[in-house]
Design a protein around this nucleic acid. Structure first.
Length: 460
RNA sequence: GGCCCCAUCAUCUAAUGGUUAGGAUUCCAGAUUUUCAUUCUGGCCAUAGGGGUUCGAAUCCCCUUGGGGUCACCA
């Protein structure tokens, strides 16, 4: 069985890059009828992990990802880590080191001065004497001293590290007894039965250390897939400074989960020329071995395009539901089908759509000067009056086509082009020269409101 | 700086060692539209550089250059 996991450290919200690795892990687990687990890496107690977990679950819920089982908190697994650290101690695979922080610091400075790699000098590796009086100790693991270590990565291929270049007897438990990251990750992944680790490639250089832990504890090493980072426009790792990195911000901004996931899955992965992927298509097609090796740049234009695509193809009922979050309540509006059909192809986000709807439903408070200049001419008054008269004598005005018919009538009676009536009417109804088809707008607001708006412009 | 990773249009990407290097987004132009948007059609734009290997290289190898990541009693 394939077991994957998402293991964020609690930063307070779910990062967009985090969502991507979570998505990929999720897809791979689901595709194999496996399990997708969630673990909060909160061994540093100074942070508020409760809130972080809630934020992550909320974001997962919004995009529709579901994790299996209970959320694991590392902060509540301390006894387990201690047990395994003790086991290594007992087996002589780890040892206590009584070196003080100051001594360590001094050693590193010396080494740097000699242009050597800062590295623990193993002074307590085989220490058997009596421990120095009143000294705190950390636990270090015995790492291999020479040779090479190969990470078999499903994305990068075999990555060979020279042990002397990268390893030393690293600390697995601090002086206060709390375990360190590389130790707990390995222990937890092993204990939770994780078979496929899919994570950012910033963790690639941690992997040898974790492999040392796996080996010492006799755990089987999982498959690794180190997926390339998402970069910003400067080509650097995406960070908070780059605008929206909080997943829930995308909800705020009016993006749909479908668009966001579609966007993220296409970063570093593709399937021929296909651009649009439903979740079920992703599930059917995604394989982490197909992930690209190079980093990709995050660009909003494509997200916008995807979002408008999903908006255009969304049933009105669903749109209606989503718009409520943006303050637009249409549930009891009798012309909501016409309204949504009129706006759904014109908005890139739900926020834009909400604005558009407001512009239709609310009588314009003022008129755009430039529009008046361009579209409201000498003869406009007369045309509008004629149009009002025609509207008043017309019967059964319901559909956009009904209104269109009246417009046609007036145009042909006066022997003028559509623009002659369209522009002034548009100003009357919308206050500006852009917007949805006028026939739709009139059908939505109705005859009375149409007449009132035209009247308002004429009385101005 | 050591170690590791990466390199096709501006961006996301495709291309059994043999293609006029394809698609998508952006941008530009035209068509459609009473307007704007949508939609449709078309256009601009790429194999980082240099060496090899090969009949033939975007693709394999080496070097250079450029970019990124990582080097804690953080995660």
């Amino acid at each position: 069985m394939v077991v994957t996991r998402f293991a964020p450290s609690p930063t307070g919200y779910l990062h967009i890059g985090g969502l991507r690795t979570a998505l990929l892990s999720y897809l791979w687990a689901r595709r194999n009828n496996g399990k997708f687990l969630l673990r909060i890496e909160d061994t540093d107690f100074s942070r508020n992990d409760e809130a972080a977990a809630r934020a992550i679950v909320e974001a997962f819920k919004w995009v529709g990802l579901e994790h299996d089982g209970e959320i694991e908190y590392q902060s509540s697994r301390l006894a387990i880590y201690q047990e395994y650290a003790q086991k290594l101690l007992d087996e002589g695979k780890a040892y206590r080191c009584y070196m003080s922080k100051e001594e360590l610091e001094a050693l590193r400075e010396e080494q740097s001065a000699r242009k050597e790699r800062p590295k623990y000098d193993n002074r307590y590796r085989d220490f058997t004497g009596t421990p120095p009086e009143g000294r705190e100790s950390v636990i270090r693991i015995k790492a291999p001293l020479s040779g090479t270590l190969t990470v078999h990565d499903g994305v990068k291929g075999d990555v060979v590290f020279n042990v002397e270049d990268i390893l030393d007897d690293f600390i697995i438990a601090r002086a206060d007894g709390t375990p360190t990251y590389n130790f707990v990750v390995a222990v937890d992944d092993a204990l939770m039965g994780v078979t496929d680790v899919i994570r950012g490639d910033d963790h690639l250089s941690n992997t040898p250390k974790q492999m040392v832990v796996y080996d010492a504890l006799g755990f089987p090493i999982p498959k690794f897939f180190h997926v390339p980072m998402i970069h910003n426009h400067e080509g650097k790792k995406l960070s908070k400074r780059d605008g929206a990195t909080d997943v829930m911000m995308y909800k705020q901004l009016g993006y749909t989960p479908e668009a966001l996931l579609n966007f993220l899955v296409r970063l570093g992965w593709s399937h021929g020329d296909q651009e649009i992927f439903s979740l079920s298509e992703m599930l059917e097609l995604f394989d982490p071995s197909d992930i690209n090796r190079s980093a990709s740049v995050y660009n909003v234009e494509k997200l916008d395009w995807l979002n408008s695509h999903y908006l255009k193809n969304m049933p009105n009922e669903k749109l209606c539901e989503l718009l409520e979050f943006h303050g637009v309540v249409l549930i009891s509006h009798d012309k909501r089908e016409i309204l949504l059909d009129a706006v759904k192809e014109r908005a890139k986000t739900l926020v834009e759509m909400a604005i558009l709807i407001g512009e239709i439903l609310v009588r314009p408070a003022d008129y755009d000067e430039a529009a008046l200049k361009k579209g409201y001419k000498e003869d406009s008054k007369e045309v509008l009056e004629k149009f009002c008269a025609a509207l008043q004598s017309a019967e059964q005005l319901h559909l956009p086509s009904d209104y269109h018919h009246v417009m046609e009538q007036v145009v042909s009676e006066l022997g003028i082009g559509f623009g002659k009536i369209g522009q002034p009417l548009r100003i009357a109804l919308m206050g500006k020269l852009s917007g949805p088809g006028l026939d739709s707008v009139m059908a939505i607001i109705g005859v009375d409101e149409t007449l009132a708006r035209v009247e308002a412009l004429l009385q101005r």
